[in-house]
Computed example of a mutant assay.
Amino acid sequence: MQNPPRWVSTSGDLERPNAARLYDYYLGGAHNFAVDREFAEHTMKLVPTAALVQHSRAFLRRAVQACLAAGIRQFLDLGSGIPTAGNVHEVAHRVDPTCRVVYVDNEPATVAHARTMLRDNPCVAFAEADVRDPEAVLGSPEVRTVLDLDRPIAVLMVAILPYVRDEDRPVELVAAYRDAVVTGSHLVLSHLTADYRPEVAEALMHVAAETQSPVVARARAAIEPLLKGFDLLEPGLVPVTEWRAEEEPSAGDETVSYGAVGVKR
Rank of each mutant, 00 (worst) to 15 (best):
P4K: 07
P4A: 08
S11N: 13
D13H: 12
L14Y: 11
L14M: 13
R16N: 10
P17E: 11
A20R: 13
N32W: 06
F33Y: 15
V35E: 10
D36K: 03
F39K: 08
A40C: 15
M44R: 15
M44L: 15
V47C: 12
V47E: 05
A50P: 14
A51C: 09
V53L: 03
H55I: 02
H55S: 14
A58G: 11
A63G: 06
V64I: 15
V64A: 12
V64T: 13
Q65G: 08
Q65W: 06
L68V: 11
L68N: 09
I72D: 01
Q74I: 07
D77L: 04
D77I: 01
D77P: 08
D77T: 02
P83C: 06
T84N: 05
V88E: 06
A92Q: 09
H93S: 07
H93F: 08
H93T: 02
D96M: 07
R100S: 04
V101R: 06
V101D: 05
V102N: 05
A109E: 03
V111S: 03
V111P: 06
A112L: 14
H113T: 07
H113G: 09
T116Q: 15
R119T: 13
R119K: 14
F126M: 11
V131K: 02
V131L: 15
R132T: 11
D133P: 01
D133K: 09
D133A: 12
D133H: 12
A136W: 04
V137C: 01
L138N: 02
G139W: 00
V146H: 10
L149P: 02
D150Q: 14
Y163W: 11
Y163C: 08
V164G: 03
D168N: 11
R169Q: 14
R169H: 14
P170I: 06
A175N: 11
A176L: 01
A180R: 05
V182M: 13
G184M: 04
V188T: 09
V188Q: 07
T193P: 03
T193G: 05
A194V: 03
Y196Q: 10
R197M: 12
H206E: 14
T211D: 02
Q212N: 10
S213N: 14
A217W: 13
R218E: 00
A219F: 11
L226R: 08
L227K: 07
D231C: 09
G236M: 10
E242C: 03
E246M: 00
E246R: 05
A251R: 13
A251P: 08
T255Y: 10
S257V: 08
Y258D: 00
G259S: 10
G259L: 07
V261Y: 04
R265L: 06
